[in-house]
């Protein structure tokens, strides 16, 4: 079983401590949502734990490998990563973009071999993209494009998924659809670590919440344990009514 672990990670960039002494673990079967205001260090924590940024202290591991020593291809076969910014430099067709998910398996665009072709077909079907497979990605709507990126991540068939704000700038329906896809991935045995800004959405989908502020993890636990109005006040500086999984935001403090 592949596990993503971060132990006491501190990440400094140009003297600023973006992440301070953060530890967490992600196992298959979990849908962990990271919550915190802008600048809390969520993306930095993800990058450090994936080995994409070198922590100044602490240690991250993916499976039995150290995150800073694992080869990019090896890492990609264990964790799919959806970064926050997802530019497409060329107007490729949807199927080619999704096929890039098979890059770490040695797939070449336009010439997919058996298992690669099958994984891409499955990912396209799962994300309801089969009818758009030959469409150019620059002709898609934001909602369709977010499904393309999810399909790209799923095509890797990696046991873990790390997604940085996968529903940013999506309308509510597409937010739900994207989260449903991630939830289905978790139900089928995957583990997902997702950064969200929508507290209601996080409460609805997460099996665990990690709360961050000023580079520190201030709480890590189930929705019922960690989501309350006092927490929202200290983390975000907002007033809210919380009743179990329901959150009603009332405004800034």
């Amino acid at each position: 079983m592949v596990e993503l672990r971060a132990d006491n990670i501190t990440l400094s960039v140009n003297g600023a401590e973006l992440v301070k002494d953060a530890s967490f673990a992600l196992k298959p079967g979990e849908l962990v949502v990271i919550l915190g205001p802008n600048g809390a260090g969520k993306t930095s924590l993800l990058r450090a734990s994936l080995g994409l940024a070198a922590p100044s202290s602490g240690h991250a591991s993916i499976g039995s490998e150290a995150a800073d020593r694992i080869s990019p291809a090896q890492r990609a076969r264990m964790i799919s990563y959806l970064p926050q910014s997802r530019p497409l430099s060329w107007p490729n067709v949807v199927k080619d973009v999704v096929s890039l998910g098979r890059f770490s398996h040695g797939a070449t665009l336009g010439r997919l071999k058996g298992p690669d072709a099958k994984a891409v077909e499955t990912a396209l079907a799962k994300c309801d993209l089969t009818h758009l497979a030959e469409r150019r990605a620059d002709t898609l709507s934001g909602g369709e494009l977010s499904r393309v990126h999810c399909a790209r991540a799923f095509a890797a068939e990696a046991p873990l998924l790390v997604a940085d704000e996968p529903v940013a700038a999506l309308d509510p329906k597409h937010q739900f659809r994207t989260m449903d896809l991630i939830k289905a991935f978790v139900s089928s045995g995957g583990g997902a670590l997702v950064v969200l800004h929508d507290i209601g959405l996080a409460a609805r989908y997460a099996t665990r919440l990690i709360w961050m502020k000023d580079g520190c993890i201030v709480a890590d636990g189930s929705v019922l344990e960690t989501l309350n109005s006092a927490r929202l006040e200290t983390i975000y500086g907002i007033k809210a009514k919380v009743d179990g999984f329901n959150v009603q935001l009332e405004g800034a403090l």
């Binding site: 990563y81 430099s89 890059f103 790209r152």
Partner: peptide, 16 residues
């Protein structure tokens, strides 16, 4: 081809 996704995602999908 991998760089089509941008550098961050390209290293994410396994590009050195």
């Amino acid at each position: 081809s991998a760089l089509t996704l941008g550098e961050e995602a390209a290293s994410g999908i396994g590009l050195n």
